[in-house]
């Protein structure tokens, strides 16, 4: 498939002016931002404003994507995808017409790049942010589908992870429109390709595994065992391990349920880590034990009190 898509990439020289056939808006192409499953994305400028322009020969698929962007734009309360600015056709020559749409240009860096630079403490924060957005999306009746690292970007000030390509977004209950094998639970033999919240939650875990296995890994003869071993081998994911495992096995029905568990695990984990540093400084033998006991108590209190919360 990959070769087929690569051939569909469209090369437009920087400086080219694209004028829409229907709305007559003029866009100046600045540079290529990347190739998607369908078509290519360029940075463009119109009246001093930047935008990301996606262009493809495939009018059908582009229309489907635009439909998704429009629907996401109607979801109240959070900005799920980039906002849509224009949809049009470009008649490059007499017999070649391309479809394009212009969306908000999100400038940031990759999830793994950001985490490497700013530290692994951010991993949990991004997990919570993403689960919150996923919950909104699922509530609105959609599943992200092609949830993968390449479709995420981290904006700075304040750090916030955003989705940039919503092409695979599918209505709940239908067949997943677009997926990438490594992130697909069907490929791992751990579920169907029906669009349901748990499909996204599986891919969500794979996004975070991908950070620690940038080259990814093969599924081997026993895909499930491989997956769990890889998860348990990552020291930095230790705190989240049980939640992530539960998501891989499809045992979460909703993002909010997973988010709740994750938050719980994070609140518990933070204290022992800090105390560990302090006890190092003190360098005494008994104190850590006593303190450890106190922390256990505190943890127990947190654990119990969490049950009282609605």
């Amino acid at each position: 498939m990959n070769q087929a898509w690569k051939k569909q990439g469209i090369n437009i020289r920087p400086g080219t002016v694209i004028t829409g056939k229907w709305h007559q808006h003029r866009y100046v192409i600045k540079q290529k931002l990347g190739n998607g499953a369908i078509g290519s994305v360029y940075l463009c400028e119109r009246n001093g404003h930047y935008g990301a322009l996606k262009i493809s020969e495939n009018a059908t698929s582009m229309t489907v994507e635009v439909n998704v962007l429009k629907s996401l734009g109607k979801v109240q309360g959070s900005r799920l995808g980039p906002s849509l600015m224009d949809v049009d056709d470009w008649e490059a020559s007499r017999n070649s017409t391309y479809s394009f749409y212009v969306m908000e240009y999100l400038r940031g860096e990759s999830l793994s790049g950001f985490i490497k630079k700013r530290g692994h403490e951010w991993t949990g924060i991004f997990m919570l942010q993403l689960l919150e957005d996923l919950e909104h999306l699922h509530q609105a009746g959609w599943v992200f589908g092609d949830f993968k690292s390449e479709n995420l970007i981290v904006l700075s000030h304040p750090p916030k992870v955003r989705w940039i390509d919503v092409g695979g977004t599918t209505q709940i209950g239908r067949a997943i429109k677009e997926y990438t094998e490594f992130y697909d639970r069907g490929y791992w033999g751990l579920g169907s390709r029906k669009a349901e919240p748990s499909y996204d939650l599986f891919a969500f875990v794979m996004v975070f595994l991908n950070i620690y296995y940038p080259k990814r890994f093969e599924k081997g003869t026993s895909p499930k065992a491989t997956l769990l071993k890889k998860l348990y081998d990552v020291r930095q994911l230790r705190v989240y391990r049980e939640c992530l495992k539960k998501a891989l096995l499809g045992n979460y029905q909703s993002s909010s349920e997973m988010r709740h568990d994750l938050l719980h695990a994070m609140n518990h984990a933070r204290r022992p880590v800090r105390s560990h540093n302090r006890s190092d400084r003190r360098d005494s033998g008994k104190a850590p034990l006593a303190e450890g006991g106190g922390i256990m108590l505190a943890a127990l209190f947190y654990y119990l009190s969490s049950f009282m919360l609605p």
Partner: peptide, 22 residues
């Protein structure tokens, strides 16, 4: 044909095609 229709209306037509495909 679909390409001859303006982008706004194209969306509605594609929704029908998608529904049928599903």
């Amino acid at each position: 044909s679909l390409e001859e229709v303006e982008p706004e209306k194209r969306g509605e037509i594609m929704e029908v095609v998608e529904d049928m495909g599903e």
